[in-house]
Computed example of a mutant assay.
Amino acid sequence: MSFKNILPSVSAQEPDEELVDPQVTLKEKCGDSTHCAHLKEKLDACTDRVNSRTKTDETCVEELFDFIHCVDHCVSKSLFSLLK
């Protein structure tokens, strides 16, 4: 089975033009959006707290997962409309 016809492709406009992954751009925009801002603040606060201690068992995994989930949800709304 060939996925060539099923999967969208992203191509450069000029032969020398470097491809830019639209997912990377969208992740940056979504990470800075007001929708995910409160989760980024929680993650940053946790990271600062953990980094300020020399001995701690605390991790910021939950905060990281919450933030990544928010960003991925935001990206999923528009990513496929940008692919050719």
Rank of each mutant, 00 (worst) to 15 (best):
K27S: 11
H35D: 15
S81H: 00
I6K: 12
R53L: 15
T47E: 01
K77G: 01
M1W: 05
V10W: 09
A12N: 13
T54R: 10
R53W: 00
N5C: 09
F65A: 07
S9I: 14
K55D: 08
S2H: 07
P22G: 10
M1G: 11
D72V: 03
L39M: 13
S76H: 10
A12H: 10
E18T: 12
P8C: 10
H73P: 01
D44F: 00
T59H: 01
S81R: 02
A45T: 08
E62F: 04
T54W: 08
L19E: 06
C30L: 10
L64C: 04
P15C: 09
T54H: 07
S33N: 05
K27F: 05
K84E: 13
R49N: 06
F65W: 02
K29I: 12
C74L: 09
V71H: 04
G31A: 06
S11Q: 07
S9Y: 07
H38R: 09
L64R: 14
E63M: 03
D48G: 04
D72N: 15
C60E: 02
P22K: 11
D44T: 08
L43S: 00
V20I: 15
L82T: 11
R53E: 14
K42Y: 03
Q13M: 09
N5G: 15
D21R: 11
V24T: 10
T54P: 02
L82F: 07
M1D: 08
D16G: 02
C70W: 03
L7K: 12
D72F: 01
M1N: 08
K29H: 05
D44Y: 01
K4W: 06
G31S: 02
D44E: 12
E63P: 02
H69E: 14
I6C: 08
L26Y: 09
K40W: 07
S11T: 08
H73K: 14
H73T: 15
T59P: 00
P8V: 07
C30N: 05
A45I: 04
Q13K: 15
